[in-house]
Amino acid sequence: MDAFIAQYIDAYYLRIMIFIGINIIMALGLNLITGVTGQLSMGHAGFMSLGAYTAAIISLHYDAPFFLAILAGAAMAASFGFIIGIPTLRLDGDDLAMVTIGFAEIIRVFFLNFEPGGKAVGLSGIPQYTDFATVWLIVIVVIILNAKLLYSRVGRSLFAIRENEIAAQSCGINTTRMKILAFTVGSFLGGLGGGLYAHYMYYINPQDFGFMKSIEILNMVVLGGMGSIPGTVLGAVILTLAPEMLRIVAEYRLLFYGGMLVILMIFRPNGLLGDVRIYDLKKRWGKKR
């Protein structure tokens, strides 16, 4: 499949598209936690690294099939999302943000000292199983399942928690349980993206998953539009493309990147497609006619 695509698309663009796909998967995970459920998580890179290392180690040492390796990585991230969820989700807002930053740092420092993970040197020689077709197939599946979730009873209760937690409880929603659910599923997707990333890069090291990576993923959700699937996808596309497009301004790249974020937030404080849901639009337009 990829050999076929490679005939038509330049390898450089193919690479960028793979990164876009991986970022969409991870950003959709964070969107579930922060955009939909309203729980500010600033440690998504921690889940990404758990997925990346777990999947890479399984591939390297156990020669497991690719899909098993990345699923194991995602499951590892999800179980940490679950475990960390239980005590921390009693917090919210700024407190939760601090705890998630701390968690991601702990994970990073852990891998910095983790013998099977190559310590600070990182892991290299990871087989490059991730290709364009696989990534985008997963992207499509994740978008469809995500959309199904958001327009269901469970999805609506997640939005309700974001909007007003006390009112959500008065509707019979077990808010703690729902928040843990959002955290678990969201970190699963973070880990899935991490596994795909590791199997594309050949090489990973703890510095790939620092605080800036968490912020980058958070930016995609905020810029694209909190709680919106099309918004998050758009955010991931723009923020993956931006550094590449801005190569023309050379050393001013980060200046432009930062400036772009500031301007967007001034003119679209809710993100480009804040709370836009394709399903709602369709319904609204359909009924009005």
Binding site: L149, S152, R153, V154, R156, S157, F159, A160, E163, N164, I166, A167, A168, S170, C171, G172, I173, L181, V185, D275, D280
Partner: peptide, 24 residues
Amino acid sequence: RLFDKLSVLDNVRIGCHGVTHSGF
């Protein structure tokens, strides 16, 4: 205490949470 950024319909649909059961 309404769910401000959700539709009127969704507000009432969320109200049905306690009498329905389908999970994740």
